[in-house]
């Protein structure tokens, strides 16, 4: 691997790791707050899947960086300007509708992205994708079912679900942005050209929202910046909480 490709791949793995750890953390905020016990258990499983993915991506990034860092250095010792996750993932937990709508947008994203990543010439990325695909299939079934139930449930649940869709829509455009790094990797057959995935994502999401009697918003606003470390004010607070113990005991093992 040339240095340029190596660095780009490391950056890419870091981004995918950041997406996973941030979303995994947000989902974990639901533990013991679920609407009933069975759902609490089930949603916890989804969080575990994402944390597992984060560990795999970060471990690979650390390997490529080869500077003595490990997965925890990536997760706990980078501040929010260094984090490269998509903004959608760092949005707060909100109410149950908000979380499930965000979950749906993310699950459909991974549904269209992972089969492409599976084709990566990079064996490690392809292997991670292979494991993640099975999980995402299950995640999507869950989030789709919840959005249907909430959208087409009661007047109150419909209102909350629509509000969530409207509030989160503008954060979804970023999912399909490409920059120099990702373009380089896509050209090398290592990374995924996400700009080609928006139509499929939009079709799937629109079908589900429509079936849920929800309105698909106009594309009238968009917020971007995650991939360059330009975050919403949410991430800072999240990382403060996530990193506090690790950082309070510098250099320690757990």
């Amino acid at each position: 691997m040339s240095d340029q490709i190596k660095n780009a791949t490391q950056e890419y793995a870091t981004r995918l790791g950041d997406d996973s750890v941030v979303l995994g953390h947000r989902i974990s905020e639901w533990v013991s707050y679920g609407p009933f016990l069975e759902e609490d258990i089930a949603y916890g499983n989804v969080s575990l899947d994402y944390i597992g993915r984060a560990r795999m991506f970060y471990t690979y990034a650390a390997e490529l960086a080869n500077d003595g860092r490990d997965e925890d250095d990536f997760a706990f010792m980078r501040n929010d300007r260094e984090y490269r996750n998509l903004l959608l993932m760092e949005m707060p937990k909100g109410d149950f509708a908000y979380s499930q709508v965000r979950q749906l947008f993310a699950d459909v994203y991974y549904t269209v992205l992972l089969p492409e990543l599976l084709q990566s010439k990079d064996e490690t990325l392809a292997a991670i994708a292979a494991k993640a695909i099975k999980e995402t299939k299950y995640h999507l079934r869950r989030s789709r079912d919840w959005v249907l139930r909430l959208g087409d449930g009661t007047e109150e649940s419909h209102k909350r679900a629509q509000k969530a869709v409207d509030q989160l829509w503008g954060y979804t455009h970023e999912l399909f942005d490409m920059d120099e790094t990702e373009q380089l990797l896509a050209d090398e057959g290592i990374g995924v050209d996400v700009s080609k995935l928006r139509d499929a994502w939009l079709q799937m999401v629109s079908d589900i929202l429509t079936e849920a009697t929800l309105t698909v918003p106009e594309d009238s606003w968009a917020v971007r910046g995650g991939r360059t470390g330009y975050h919403t004010e949410n991430l800072g607070h999240m990382l403060t909480e996530m990193q506090i113990v690790h950082r309070s005991f510098p250099g320690c093992k757990w």
């Binding site: 009933f36 016990l37 069975e38 759902e39 258990i41 089930a42 499983n45 079934r141 869950r142 079912d145 139930r149």
Partner: peptide
């Protein structure tokens, strides 16, 4: 376990 219908029961059974 408690669920709304058979499909949901199956999904929760997997998790629980």
């Amino acid at each position: 376990l408690h669920a709304e219908d058979h499909e949901q029961a199956l999904e929760y059974a997997r998790d629980c």
